[in-house]
Nucleic acid binder design. Structure first.
Lengths: 139, 139
DNA sequence: GTTCTTGCAAAATATTTGCAAGACG
DNA sequence: CGTCTTGCAAATATTTTGCAAGAAC
C-alpha cells in the first residue's frame, strides 16, 4: 500500500492515522520547502481547509512539523528529529523575497545569544530574508 | 512648547510633523518597549486607528521605527540610528511569554549566519521567546 | 456507545485600502 | 489650487472555533 510509510510514521508519534492526516502528511513528505495552509489546501482540493488546519496543529503538537511565522502567514515543515516532548530540530529559516519559498536551514546551528540577566530563554525564531539560489541564478 | 522635540525630530527625517504624527511619536518616546497598533490606539483614544497605522508605516519608511512581527501581531519600536536610506539599528528582540512585552536587545549584535552558496542575505529577524526579568522576579 | 474526526459555516483577529472631506501651504 | 492627511467605513487575509453528522474503536 502506498500510504504505509505515513501510517507507520503517525502511529509511532501516537497520532491516529486518519485518511485526511495521511493525505496531509503525504503531501508534506513530497515538499522540499515549508508550505502554508493554502498551499496544502491547493494540493488537496477535496480536503476541507479547517481539517487541514487541525491536522497541522496536531502534527505540530506531536512534533511532526514545526511552524514558521512569516510576515503574512504561517508555514509548516516536517521536523527531522522532534518528538512531542522535545523539539530538538531547531534551525534558522530562509525566506526568499522573490519566489516566497521558505527553506529550513537545517544544517545551520541556531546562534545562541547572551540574554540580559534574569531573562530566561524558551524559544528562538531566526528568519532570514533574501534571495534564494534559484532566483539568484535567474537574475 | 511640549512637542518641539518631536517636531524637530520629524522634520529632520523629512516627515511632515502633523498633529497626529506628533502624538504617535510622543507616545513612542514614552515607551520603553515595543508597542502594537492597539496599544498606540489605547494610548490615544481620540485618534483613528487607520491614521495611527499610516503614521507608523510612514515612520517605518523613513527610518523612525522598525517593526517586529510576532506570532499574532506586529509591534513597533523607535530606531536609534536609522535613516530612510539605511537601517543600521538591527538587533534581536525578546518577547516575554508571560507579560507579552517585547524588548529590543539593542546591545546585542545580530549573529551572522553563513548562508548556503548563492543565497543572498537581505534582512534578519531574530525573535527570542522566554520570560523577562520582571516576570522572573515575580515567579 | 463513547470518543475522535470531519465538513460547513461563521467568528475572531489583524492588517490594509477607498474615498471624500478637510488641512496645509 | 494642488497635494497631503485624516476619519470613517469596509475589504482583505488568515487563523480559529462551534456544532452537528459521521467514522472509528
Amino acid at each position: 500500500m502506498a500510504l504505509q510509510k505515513e501510517e507507520l510514521f503517525l502511529k509511532n508519534k501516537n497520532i491516529k492515522p486518519t485518511a485526511m492526516r495521511l493525505l496531509v502528511l503525504q503531501y508534506l513528505f513530497s515538499c522540499e520547502e515549508a508550505v502554508s495552509l493554502n498551499q496544502v489546501e491547493e494540493a488537496l482540493p477535496n480536503a476541507d481547509k479547517s481539517t487541514i488546519f487541525r491536522s497541522l496543529k496536531t502534527f505540530e503538537e506531536f512534533g511532526v512539523v514545526h511552524s514558521i511565522r512569516e510576515a503574512t502567514l504561517t508555514k509548516y515543515a516536517l521536523c527531522k528529529t522532534c518528538t512531542a516532548e522535545v523539539h530538538t530540530d531547531k534551525h534558522p529559516h530562509f525566506h526568499c523575497n522573490k519566489c516566497d519559498s521558505t527553506i529550513c536551514l537545517s544544517h545551520i546551528l541556531l546562534p545562541q545569544i547572551q540574554l540580559p540577566e534574569h531573562f530566561k530563554l524558551q524559544e528562538q525564531e531566526y528568519l532570514i530574508h533574501g534571495i534564494c539560489d534559484k532566483c539568484n541564478a535567474i537574475a
